[in-house]
Design a protein around this nucleic acid. Structure first.
Length: 571
RNA sequence: GCGGCCGUCGUCUAGUCUGGAUUAGGACGCUGGCCUUCCAAGCCAGUAAUCCCGGGUUCAAAUCCCGGCGGCCGCACCA
């Protein structure tokens, strides 16, 4: 099945392995002329569901692929995307070196370098737990592609493994430009790179690919709820972590159930999962479910993760991931950059709160010698008012002098208009090439020994094809006239080579939903035939009506309702 | 990364085991012409493969050997 699709993809210019003339590189693919058209339509469809339909609170930005070291250090990718691995020289099993040592030697090796881990393995004489073989050298495996920024080798950078960090690092800017409102979704469609150990399965696992994702920022304490009502009584298939352990199948849940039972921890995450369900349906997928990831399967930043799995025949492919990233990323960037990533949240009414403040008695302190002042100040400087109060009550002394002579704690009433919070984030994330592959696989049909790419109309690379029935000059000229008329409104392709059957077949193979044929009767009564890709039925319409008839078809009207089906079969 | 199988025109493949007259053959596609009043029709002509790359063995390598790259499958990996 997928071999046939790959063969079609190469032949018709949908996608193929990159750098083929040099032998190719695993995990890198070109998208061809037809593929780019379909891919662009998929991206545009995604934008409609995730951005345009949510334009009250979602905006789109673009940030660079090249990312400074510090950013991915803060995000945890440098640490967590890098694994020390060790391979058995005999049976070639690969282990996480740190996990292996912790398990076999029961020592904590957190933060040790590969060479230190290696030393421990030699010292303790650790062997492969599977076969007892000698272990090889510990080396680092990092899924991040490294590069240098500028001409100096000192300034290391990476190619981003996700677009998300761009949204986090520019969050405050977008927030300001968005007039400081939460919730705020920041979307991005962009290329990312992951240096996979052994990429396989074509477009499913690539070393460089396109991600479409939304980082959705919200106040976890807010009572602003997502507009879940827009999904009506939609149901979602969910495989919960606990059910997965019991080898059970996904179960159907209503939105209310998922929310009330806290099966999905956050209502906004649920909102985007339901949106993802609608989008994937629009791609033409019939069967999919959401699988909850177990704690050890989750990324370092995630509190809860669901993968959306599409099922086509025997193939199960992860089409999207939904992670509850909490305030992990913004907090880390705050810490590593020293910048304030918080959002000021205004209360409905100002609150008055009681706050303890430290008041230093300068008069008495200034009478003391410098040595005492220094010691005294260093004693209180890093302490909270509450701690100092305790010391005062306990008659704490500095240099033999009671501190209560020099400092006192007052309680003050303050009017507070709001507070600084770090927004939480949920993230729906799609791989575009996976969407493309699954859409193609799903659309791939064979009819009477011929290939038909039965794409949803709005994803087809061209809307319409225009052909002369025969290679006769007057028909070709008329066909070009019609072509020029139709292309003003639709993506149109013209073909006058080969026989009419061949032209239909070519159009079917790249999924063009409608083909217009100019035949001798056109020259008599100005009518043409329109052929439906999936049924191969034809209707006859006047040239002046072509555009309006096509518009009705693209709006979803049934083929045999917009015109009378005619019989053009040969005897 | 390991192991098994595999790599020949744009595509699918014959030939490889058993090295040599094979000018590396076919089918489909593609291009041009003729024909053709609706589904890859027919006829004619043309097009295209340094047989994945590099090295070795040999008088002689698509064919045997080694290495690399790539693909498929299994194992491992897949924050």
């Amino acid at each position: 099945m997928s071999e046939k699709l790959i063969e079609l993809a190469k032949r018709r210019g949908i996608f193929w392995p990159s750098y083929e003339i040099y032998g190719g590189v695993a995990g890198l693919y070109d998208i061809g002329p037809i593929g780019v058209r379909i891919k662009n339509k998929i991206i545009e469809l995604w934008r409609r569901y995730f951005i345009y339909d949510n334009s009250e609170f979602v905006v789109e930005i673009e940030t660079p692929m090249i990312t400074p070291y510090k950013v991915l250090e803060a995000s945890g990718h440098v640490e967590n995307f890098t694994d020390p691995i060790v391979e058995c020289t005999k049976c070639h099993k690969i282990y996480r070196a740190d996990h292996l040592i912790e398990e076999l030697a029961k020592i904590n090796v957190e933060g040790l370098s590969p060479s230190e881990l290696d030393r421990i393995i030699r010292e303790k004489g650790l062997k492969c737990p599977a076969c007892g073989g000698e272990l090889g050298e510990v080396r680092l495996f990092n899924l991040l592609f490294t590069t240098n920024i500028g001409p100096y080798t000192g300034n290391q950078g990476f190619l981003r493994p996700e677009t998300a960090q761009g949204m986090f690092t520019s969050f405050k800017r977008v927030f300001e430009a968005f007039r400081q409102k939460l919730p705020l979704g920041i979307a991005q469609v962009g290329r990312v790179a992951r240096n996979e150990i052994s990429p396989r399965q074509g477009l499913i696992r690539m070393r460089e690919f396109t991600i479409m994702e939304v980082e959705f920022f919200f106040d976890p304490e807010s009572n602003v709820n997502p507009p879940l009502e827009k999904f009506g009584n939609m149901k979602l298939n969910i495989l919960r972590g606990e059910d997965k352990l019991k080898n059970e199948k996904p179960k159907e849940y209503s939105i209310e159930e998922l929310l009330k039972e806290k099966i999905v921890l956050n209502p906004w995450m649920l909102y985007w999962m339901a949106t993802a369900a609608k989008f994937v349906t629009a791609l033409g997928m019939k069967s999919y479910y959401f699988e909850e990831k177990l704690p050890h399967e989750r990324a370092h930043y995630s509190k809860q993760t669901f993968d959306q799995i599409v099922v086509i025949g025997d193939e199960k492919v992860e089409i999207s991931g939904h992670a509850y990233r909490t305030d992990y990323d913004l907090s880390r960037h705050m810490k590593y950059s020293g910048q304030d990533m918080t959002v000021f949240k205004k209360y409905d009414k100002p609150k008055t709160i009681k706050r303890k403040i430290v008041v230093i008695n300068k008069d008495s302190l200034n009478k003391e010698d410098k040595e005492f002042v220094k010691n005294f100040m260093s004693f209180i400087s890093s302490k909270k008012p509450e701690e100092i109060e305790e010391f005062i009550n306990a008659n704490e002394k500095v240099n033999g002098k009671n501190i209560s002579n020099y400092v006192k704690i007052l309680e003050k009433e303050e009017k507070v208009n709001g507070e600084k919070i770090i927004p939480h984030v949920v993230e729906p994330s799609f791989g575009v090439e996976r969407c493309l592959y699954l859409t193609l696989l799903n659309a791939y049909k064979e009819k009477e020994g011929r290939i038909v790419l039965s794409l949803p109309k709005y994803l087809a690379p061209y809307d319409v094809a225009v052909f002369p029935l025969l290679e006769k000059e007057e028909l070709i000229n008329k066909a070009k006239e019609v072509y020029n008329l139709v292309r003003e409104r639709f993506d149109t392709i013209f073909d006058d080579s080969g026989s009419i059957g061949k032209r239909y077949a070519r159009a079917d193979e790249i999924g063009v939903p409608y083909s217009i044929t100019i035949d001798p009767q056109t020259l008599v009564d100005n009518s043409v035939t329109i052929r439906d890709r999936d049924t191969w039925q034809q209707i006859r319409v006047n040239i002046n009506d072509i555009v309006s008839v096509l518009e009705r078809l693209f709006k979803g009207e049934e083929f045999n309702k917009v015109g009378k089906v005619i019989n053009n079969e040969n005897e």
